[in-house]
């Protein structure tokens, strides 16, 4: 197995674990953690393709990963702010209990 393939397999595994976390857990914060894991797995793919791609000096994969890290940080801030706002409204972060569109 080539080094690129092994990095891609690790990224796929982390992505699947993050997806499972986002799908099976009740707590909204855990869902956000799962989404962060999925974004990180995508970043690992970008960096691996940048490293083993034909033109690493063009920095495309590296730049995409850096911008993706910045966007993921913004997403985490907004997501956790939303979780805190919902908790203040409904006194729970349990997603199975949030089944009403109207507060």
């Amino acid at each position: 197995m080539t080094p690129l393939a092994s990095y891609l397999l690790v990224a796929a595994l982390v992505f699947a674990i993050g997806l499972a976390g986002a799908l099976v857990r009740r707590n909204a914060i855990l869902v956000l953690i799962g989404i962060e894991l999925m974004l990180n797995a995508a970043n690992l793919n970008f960096i691996a393709f940048w490293r083993y791609g034909p033109h690493p000096e063009a920095l495309t994969g590296m730049m995409f990963a850096i911008f993706s890290i910045a966007v993921a940080a913004a997403e985490a801030a907004v997501g956790l702010g939303l979780v805190i706002a919902i908790y203040r409204h409904a006194q729970t972060t349990d997603l199975d209990k949030m089944n009403r569109m109207k507060g």
Binding site: L9, A12, F15, L19, L23, V24, D96
Partner: peptide
């Protein structure tokens, strides 16, 4: 409990996603 009612579907979906990704990586 900490797991949602539909946890089995979530596990199956993520296992299927990993299988598809792994198959694509290994067969390329």
């Amino acid at each position: 409990g900490v797991f949602s009612r539909s946890w089995l579907a979530g596990v199956v979906i993520s296992a299927a996603v990993f299988a598809a990704l792994g198959w694509a990586i290994l067969r390329s």
